[in-house]
């Protein structure tokens, strides 16, 4: 029975490799950034108006502008690392990026895993669907197929309020979520208000009209825990940008609204 033996041996090999659990050295991200001369920032590439591509495939959007500004203020070259929504936090945890600027909302689960700076942009999650779909409140989602991006704040929020017979389709990234809705694969899409507005501007085949807002979830910049130096630095940069009007300029340019006073 060679085959059966091989099964156990392979399982054993897996376990052996696994027990070599690593203990990466304690790092100071701020010092690393200074030493490298570059700061690695995780940004979205599929989430207008925060980050998407133009016809030249270059990234543009609010998060891209934020990242560029922070790089300039820190005197470091920005290395844009495109992240998907569900992968944002693992990117930080595995030290692939120094910061995540990707319309990241804050919740209790995430606070256990990573740290947050102060908020930099207003954001509301909402339920969107074409005009002829009648939805006014969470109960109306009963029996509907709903597209949402797995692991996004709105996924957590939706999972809490949706009736049990709502058919929630969780996609890997916003490409999938949006494509599925626009292709008519789902009746409803749950996403950010400004994202839906950006889609509407392009006059898509299925129009995501607002049905109701779920929760307010401003965007924060995410970083690893125990990086006080980096956190203070970024917080200072955001405060300055709020004061000198830079941030208000970004918000006006990309979200077409005023910077809320309570942010």
């Amino acid at each position: 029975m060679m085959k059966r033996r091989s099964l156990f041996a392979v399982a054993g090999m897996l376990l052996a490799g696994f027990s070599l659990s690593g203990a990466p050295a304690q790092a100071d991200a701020l010092a690393d950034i200074a030493a490298r001369g570059t700061i690695r920032i995780g940004v979205p590439q599929d989430y207008p108006p925060f980050g998407s591509v133009g016809t030249d495939m270059n990234l543009k959007g609010l998060d891209i502008d934020m990242a560029t500004m922070i790089g300039e203020k820190m005197g470091a070259k920005v290395e844009f690392v495109p992240v998907t929504l569900p992968n944002r936090i693992p990117y930080l945890q595995t030290n692939k990026v120094d910061l995540i600027i990707s319309s990241l909302g804050k919740n209790a689960e995430r606070e256990k895993a990573v740290d947050f700076t102060q908020a930099y942009a207003p954001f509301f999650n909402g339920v969107f669907a074409p005009k002829d779909v009648k939805i006014e409140k969470p109960e109306d989602l009963s029996g509907k197929t709903i597209a949402v991006t797995r692991g996004a704040i709105e996924d957590f929020a939706l999972s809490k309020i949706a009736p049990p017979d709502a058919d929630i389709k969780r996609f890997e990234d916003n490409n999938g979520t949006m494509s599925a809705f626009l292709a008519g694969q789902t009746e409803v899409i749950v996403t950010g208000n400004v994202h839906a507005a950006a889609i509407l501007e392009k006059n898509p085949p299925k129009r995501p009209e607002l049905k109701f807002l779920m929760n307010k979830s401003p965007c924060y910049i995410g970083l690893n825990k125990n990086e006080a130096g980096l956190k203070d630095k970024v917080n200072a940069i955001i405060s300055e940008a709020k004061k000198d009007g830079t941030l208000a300029g970004f918000i006006d340019k990309w979200l077409h609204q005023e910077l809320p006073a309570d942010l």
Partner: peptide
């Protein structure tokens, strides 16, 4: 097929990963 929201074994790993932030363990 998890990429199009079919809820197979990989989807399970992804789903757990985004709930627990235990990417490596879930994929392992």
């Amino acid at each position: 097929v998890s990429q199009i929201a079919a809820e197979d074994l990989t989807f399970a790993a992804n789903y757990i990963q985004s709930r627990t932030f235990r990417a490596f363990e879930a994929y392992f």
